[in-house]
């Protein structure tokens, strides 16, 4: 048994629980759309916008992953 790196819930294996795995996949999948929309955008800028801008209708779990990744500074 291990813990999800974001919410600390018990999981059988891996880094993220199911919910945060979906959220992380969605974050990765949408990054190219954001790059196209703004022409230039780094992964870090993208995560910062997602986690800081209250006007963006991003889901709470996706936001939690973005904050975690920013803290870890990794993709």
């Amino acid at each position: 048994m291990v813990k999800c790196v974001v919410c600390q819930s018990t999981i059988e294996k891996g880094e993220y629980c199911d919910a945060h795995t979906i959220a992380k996949n969605n974050l990765e999948k949408r990054f190219s759309d954001w790059q196209k929309a703004y022409e230039k955008m780094s992964w870090k800028e993208y995560l910062t916008r997602i986690s800081d801008d209250a006007d963006i209708p991003v889901g709470e779990w996706a936001k939690e992953v973005a904050i975690y990744l920013l803290e870890q500074n990794k993709k």
Partner: peptide
């Protein structure tokens, strides 16, 4: 709820 909480929007 899962779809909403894991949602990442696209700018437009």
């Amino acid at each position: 709820e899962r779809d909403i909480q894991t949602f990442v929007p696209i700018p437009r």
